[in-house]
Amino acid sequence: MSIKNLIICIVILAGLVALPHFLAYNFQDLLIFLAVNVLVVVSYRLVTLTGEWSLIHVVMMGVGAYASAMLSKMAGFPFWISMPIAGLTAATIAALLCFPLFRMTQFYFLIGSFAAGEAIRLVWIYFIDPFGGSSGINNLPPPELGDIDFYEPIPYFYMTLIIVTISLFILYRIEKSRVGLTLNAVHWKAPLAESVGVDTWKYRSLALIVGSFFVGIAGALKVHYLGVVTPHQFGIGVMVFVLIWVIVGGYASFVGPIIGVVVLTVFDQGLRASGIVDPAVQPAVYGAVLIASILFMPEGLEGIGKRFFSKSSGENA
């Protein structure tokens, strides 16, 4: 990470620390979910680095959320222990799923991951004991630490911010490491990578397991703030939103998905606040934005920004 990028990161973080104090109560809530969603899209990008588009990511988030919810509710574990276990549970389930899923690639993998995810979700709905069926598990305890009241959005946001920032840093380091480069090689030149002794199955699995670990933590962060976990929070509809954020933002770079989720969330709120569009019509607006971004900006928002900057720097030269 260059000095310039480091300064930009510090400025953004300082801004985020100050931001909730200027926002109304309901926007503070939103900021927490936004931070969680940033972790969701960035961990998803790690999975897509190998070129496989999985539809199970949000269900893995649910696996983490359910693990943390059940541990804290039924076994009385504090959040600080149940959250890492949530990540580990999601990673373990992902590791088990690697055996069937990575026998497939491309279209088959997409459908296979979708099927496996739906099966997990239906298990939550069907087995009322212990998963609580359609209404899920409620009254989840918030984290406890000294006198801090984690029912309040601002402390919860700071905690989320710290955990998400650490996770993003780790994910960034992974992507820039030798492992990350190998993942890229597996995507673009799988036969070549295999010919020089890279076990592509191993690296695809690794990406899915690590991505699932972080999204499991994101799941725990989300449901302990809401206080409730249900199967519907992790349906294919939510997965579609993750896809939209990543694609509209641009999945070619690390910051693209983050830009996507932030811009679309602000756009969404602006639309809601402006009152021009009926809330019932909003999914259609999302659909139109999605189609337009595929047709007119295949590299996403991030690609547009890059083009703009490279043009202006070209003029300077």
Binding site: W53, F107, L110, V240, L243, I244, I247, A280, V281, P283, A284, Y286, G287, A288, V289, L290, I291, I294, L295, P298
Partner: peptide
């Protein structure tokens, strides 16, 4: 939607998800 994206099957799939949202809203309306 599909013809301009003939070389990229993923783009076609994403576009069809966009259509899915739009049709659901139209039905709702």
């Amino acid at each position: 939607l599909f013809r301009p994206n003939r070389t990229d099957p993923l783009a076609g799939l994403i576009c069809s998800i966009g259509v899915l949202f739009i049709l659901q809203v139209i039905a709702h309306e």
